[in-house]
């Protein structure tokens, strides 16, 4: 535990009025404790997210276990190519996001902005593929559950196919909403980096927190991909 001496640089954050000594806020012993506090707080939030998605994954597992044949029949309308391309896009965006954290640690703002921009580009491309290549054709083929749902295939049950597509739209839709929120947060973060705001320029943990959220979105997709796009025959 390093003792704080009076001659150390003291900086007043005019936005909050709290004094930070070498980046450490007054309630923390040192910078490592402060950064650990950030990480634990963010992980607590991610645990609540895991709970939310976990319930959906459990329900999906139950219904796929019970209605294996109908789920296989309905899964033929979920095409592998947009899924594979979207997986690639999200993995690439996770990579650029972690690079953004790396360059934030090194205070290389230009490279941070480039990587955050690439992350937002990949994320937007993900949503374009998701909506343009998957959602809109499914709406046109009457595969959205509801009164207009059409199932004229001999195999599989119409009701179970509706259950499958309810799960599909709920889970990928909730995930897509997280992607959209992620794009907005990363955009805001990039704006602060551009202004070299001390909260993101000197303190890399804020960027790290956004990155944790973004990697979580990637994690959800890592499981959604085999469950919806790769059902074995």
């Amino acid at each position: 535990m390093s003792a704080i001496t009076l001659d150390e640089h003291e900086e007043h954050d005019e936005h909050h009025g709290h004094a930070r000594v070498n980046g450490v806020m007054h309630q923390f012993e040192d910078i490592d404790q402060q950064n650990e506090c950030y990480a634990v707080g963010m992980w607590s939030f991610l645990v609540t997210e895991i709970m939310m998605f976990g319930a959906l994954f459990m329900a999906y597992t139950l219904y796929r276990w019970r209605y294996a044949d109908s789920f296989l029949a309905a899964h033929q309308y979920v095409h592998i190519w947009p899924g594979a391309i979207n997986t690639t896009l999200l993995l690439a965006s996770s990579f650029t996001m972690v690079l953004a954290v790396h360059y934030t640690q090194l205070k290389k703002t230009k490279l941070v902005l480039m990587n955050l921009g690439a992350t937002m580009f990949f994320a937007t491309a993900f949503l374009v593929v998701k909506i343009g290549w998957e959602y809109i054709p499914k709406f046109q083929e009457h595969l959205f559950p509801g009164p207009n749902f059409v199932w004229d295939k001999p195999e599989g049950s119409k009701n179970v196919a509706q259950i499958f597509f309810s799960f599909y739209f709920t889970m990928t839709g909730l995930h897509g909403l997280h992607v959209l929120i992620g794009i907005l947060i990363i955009g805001f973060l990039a704006l602060q980096h551009k202004k070299k705001h001390p909260a993101v320029h000197d303190d890399y943990m804020l960027t790290e927190m956004v990155a944790l959220y973004w990697h979580f979105v990637d994690l959800v997709w890592i499981f959604l991909f085999p469950l919806y796009y790769l059902i074995p025959k």
Partner: peptide, 8 residues
């Protein structure tokens, strides 16, 4: 310390 972000 100082040439990189706080605690990095």
């Amino acid at each position: 310390p100082g040439e990189v972000a706080w605690g990095a």
